[in-house]
Design a protein around this nucleic acid. Structure first.
Length: 309
DNA sequence: ATCACTGCAGCTGCTTAGAT
DNA sequence: ATCTAAGCAGCTGCAGTGAT
């Protein structure tokens, strides 16, 4: 691990890293719970095979905005370098905001994996590491004082490991993504269809029971006047919708010369009522295409044989 | 023509999750 | 402590499909 505080050393390292294809990056923020959070550290890993953080570089950039500016311009805004973060939106607030190019977010990646393939209680980096690698990691330093100097060895060690865990998680997520998005050209329709129909059937049974029990629970809790149990909460919400006769709205708009310029959907019912006056209107017709999948009812094998392909 | 059903979309109000 | 984005529940409403 390399811990750099000297400006010229850091800038030299930034220059060196502009040739990398991918960087795994994390930051630590001081005074995070105040109006003025300050960027304290930028941790960078360039070698994903490093699982102990030997090659991690920790850039101490607290109160050194020129260095941060250089990092943003040379690394963050450089589209040829892929930057991997966890919850990138947070780090980007300090590192170039929406100017940053070629950013990958492992939180977003994890969310794009269907739950049944990657069941997670939450999407924190800690959880991802634990589930994907069956190891426990300590995150207690996360909320420590990153504004103090010198930083403790424990803090630096913690800071060092973050980009390592990040690269590990990133690697597994890439593998999972390949499984999740196979090539439609080569999908096995037979087995996919069989699984689909099987699940549909199970879903029908399950959802009917869920709905049934939900109804009974609501009724029971209302009747017994229990709004909360150890595991459930029943809450009531009300909602107001304000409506007006269209003719009145039109009159008022005209009288007061309101510029209510927005399109109104002409439903089939309305179109029927308008009939011949339709031609007097300048219509904007939008077409949308949708695909529907439905299960065919196949009575028996004989019928199948009669089907003509 | 009518009906039930499904899928899709949007809204309100509320809650949660992630970062440090 | 703070921010922000997203999700969820519950609802309304429309369009298309297929059966009658």
């Amino acid at each position: 691990m390399l811990y750099l505080r000297n400006a010229s050393e850091i800038n030299a390292l930034i220059a060196q890293y502009t040739h990398k294809k991918t960087l795994w990056v994390d930051t630590e923020i001081a005074d995070f719970n105040t109006q003025n959070p300050r960027l304290s550290l930028i941790q960078v890993l360039g070698d994903p095979s490093d699982t102990i953080g030997r090659t991690v570089v920790i850039l101490d950039v607290i109160e050194q905005p020129e260095i941060v500016e250089n990092f943003i311009e040379s690394i963050m805004n450089n589209p040829t370098i892929e930057k991997v973060f966890h919850q990138a939106s947070y780090d980007l607030k300090f590192l170039g905001k929406n100017q940053a190019q070629n950013v990958t977010c492992t939180l977003e990646m994890a969310k794009s994996i269907p739950h049944y393939l990657l069941p997670l209680p939450n999407f924190s980096l800690k959880t991802l590491v634990e589930v994907l690698y069956q190891i426990n990691i300590d995150k207690t330093e996360q909320t420590s004082d990153w504004g103090q100097r010198p930083l403790s060895d424990i803090q630096l060690n913690y800071a060092k490991m973050d980009p390592v865990y990040l690269a590990m998680v990133h690697h597994k997520l890439l593998q999972l993504q390949a499984v999740v998005y196979p090539n439609p050209e080569t999908e096995d329709l037979t087995s996919l269809a069989a699984r689909y129909l099987q699940l549909k059937q199970q879903l029908k049974l399950l959802s009917s029971e869920v709905e049934h029990i939900e109804t009974r629970l609501k009724a029971a809790m209302q009747t017994q006047k229990i709004s909360e149990t150890d595991y459930l909460k029943l809450s009531r919400s009300q909602r107001q919708t304000t409506k007006v006769e269209f003719s009145q709205l039109a009159t008022v708009a005209q009288q007061h010369r309101l510029s209510l310029n927005f399109p109104v959907t002409l439903t089939q019912k309305l179109q029927k009522e308008l009939k011949e006056f339709m031609t007097e209107l300048s219509l904007q017709v939008e077409t949308t295409t949708s695909w529907r999948l439905s299960a065919k009812q196949v009575e028996n094998i004989d019928n199948q044989d009669e089907l003509d392909f």
